[in-house]
Design a protein around this nucleic acid. Structure first.
Lengths: 338, 338
DNA sequence: TTAAGCCGTGTTATCGTTATCATACCAATA
DNA sequence: TATTGGTATGATAACGATAACACGGCTTAA
């Protein structure tokens, strides 16, 4: 392995002179030395040792990507796409990305500190743990989709409430009278308030229009023993429209409905959430509440680097907009419906 | 930041004694010191500095995940799922994962050497560059889906040829007479021999059964100006079955066919390749050549750690099996077809 | 002429850890 | 008694880089 020392010896200068050239402090080195040293660097394929740099300069140029969830966190397209966008951007800034999968609160702070990560971006639910993490680390932290009351937390969220509102409005305008909601983890207090907010916007808007959303029309698939279609079909009267809090679940529901002989949108209109690429690929193409993952990644990365550069930059909670994308999984209710 | 020195001072011992405890060399330290030191470590939330460790011990416990491709490499579910599986397993071994996206041959060796990665797993096409990489690095390297003639390369591949065979057999048994193939990057010599092998198995089997696969029935969508459906419909006589070399493309084709008024499988039987989760979600559910990504990840990770532990472990080229998964996108040709 | 300042370069200490060797102590063996 | 050997510990020197300061030589202003 080639080190600064080797190059210094070859060039007949001190390591500091080489170090300056490597780090682009060219104004401090004579032209002839710059040329000589750069040539040797090229020839020897010298690569600076990041560990040594990190140790000495106390800046690692490492950003951690922390993804919570169970099993293969990247098999979820939402995580995967967002992760990819973030990695691309972080890399473009000359930083390195370390990926950490965690289930619940394994001591992620250990992992961040081991390599002196300069910052971290979090995917998934961390609400309960945000404060712990905040106190344990003094590095730049950016959360996504986290609801919290702690002021110092920087977060990039989504206007989930509005998403619910848009879905409700769409159903109301289409003339639906009996509607339902499907999601997961609805009862846990802190967890998944993303879904809760979508529900709130949905319910509030329905009620304003004089439509009720009874509790039993709010289906929590994380506790229901029934399959998605069964859960819907068990409702009397049967809803003609449903908002499902995630595209993946919506697709699953539609599959299941088909197998049970129900048609979408004729028998049931379905709105998803996220607009994953998948939404355009299924039949019928999924009407969904779209969020812009590229934008989310961009904002998160920008915030991260802002806080890396300036530890005293104020915490921000950015809420991104959503829009309804009407495709083929929603329609007016059939008049001859039972 | 708490260091070994701090703990040593508090415990009234030398740093080496603390180091031994931290590294589990408990037989070399007295019981009372072990207890005392462990207690202080807990209290102070000491975390060993990995950079310093790496520098001193010359082992970083870092594994690089190198993913080639354009733009967001993780938006491809194949990459994402495989990456997730690998990350999980690497992490379980106590190693850290650095992710590197590269397009073409950016100097990935720099990135690996900067942090002294102990090993690397590669996703994507690297055929041309494998040798370069091999020569530049002396660390454990595992490629996936790479065809190469270099003996020292460790690779986890797929029986792509058999995949083509299975698809052809399926079409032959179903009574198809006019069949086609769709893929990308078919002409490049080294690149994407994965697809070429699938094509070879397909063509060989068809020919053995007396069916021709004329060149113009081999559609390369990376050079065709037509949309997938258009490319198929331009063929006279129109094929009644087609093997598409990747699920994503197959789904795209089916979508496009629908919009052009053609039904799957009635007008055209379609077989995909990979069996992504997506394949079960679309309508019709996609018949496809299945590969086991978990297995692929497991084998790749095992090979990686074997070569990390033993630099002289022999290079291996493991070929994983495939199987045909019949779903709803294939059928016998309609008799009344034009 | 002298003080001040810049430029290019080198010297030294340090980052936090581990490798290696040395040492002190005690027990067991010849 | 002298030798050997194990056990627990410490001292010292790396690992590869950067930070901070020092220094000589030159120019410029007082």
């Amino acid at each position: 392995m080639v080190t600064l020392k080797d190059i210094a010896r070859q060039a007949g200068v001190s390591v500091m002179t080489v170090s300056r050239v490597v780090n682009g402090q060219l104004s401090k080195v004579s032209k002839e030395n710059i040329d000589k040293i750069q040539k040797i660097i090229e020839e020897t394929h010298y690569v600076p040792n990041s560990s040594a740099r990190s140790l000495s300069s106390r800046s690692s140029h490492i950003v951690a990507l922390v993804i919570s969830g169970e099993s293969n966190q990247l098999s979820n397209p939402y995580n995967a796409i967002l992760a990819g966008e973030v990695i691309e951007r972080v890399q473009k800034q000359g930083y390195y990305v370390m990926v950490h999968f965690i289930s619940h609160y394994e001591d992620i702070t250990q992992r961040l500190r081991a390599w002196n990560a300069e910052g971290a971006i979090f995917f998934g639910t961390f609400d309960q743990d945000i404060q712990k993490i905040m106190f344990d680390n003094r590095i730049a932290l950016v959360f996504t989709d986290s609801y919290t009351h702690v002021r110092q937390v920087t977060n990039v969220g989504l206007d989930d409430y509005k998403g619910g509102v848009l879905a409700a409005e769409h159903f109301i305008q289409s003339g639906h009278q009996t509607v339902a909601f499907m999601g997961t983890s609805l009862n846990q207090q802190q967890l998944s308030s993303v879904v809760n907010n979508r529900l709130d916007g949905y319910r509030d808007t329905l009620e304003k229009a004089g439509l009720a959303l009874p509790d039993n029309y709010i289906l929590d698939m994380s506790v229901s023993p029934l399959s998605p279609a069964q859960a819907v079909m068990a409702l009397q009267p049967r809803p003609t429209a449903i908002l499902v809090a995630a595209d993946l679940q919506a697709v699953e529901l539609i599959q299941d409905l088909k197998q049970n002989g129900l048609r979408v949108p004729e028998d049931l209109s379905v709105i998803g959430f996220d607009d994953l690429p998948l939404a355009r690929m299924v039949t019928p193409r999924l009407t969904t509440i779209r969020q812009d993952l590229k934008q989310k990644a961009q904002v998160a990365t920008e915030l991260l680097f802002r806080h890396i550069q300036d530890p005293y930059a104020p915490a921000e909670n950015i809420i991104l907009d959503v829009e309804l994308l009407q495709r083929d999984s929603t329609a007016s209710p059939c008049p001859d419906q039972p």
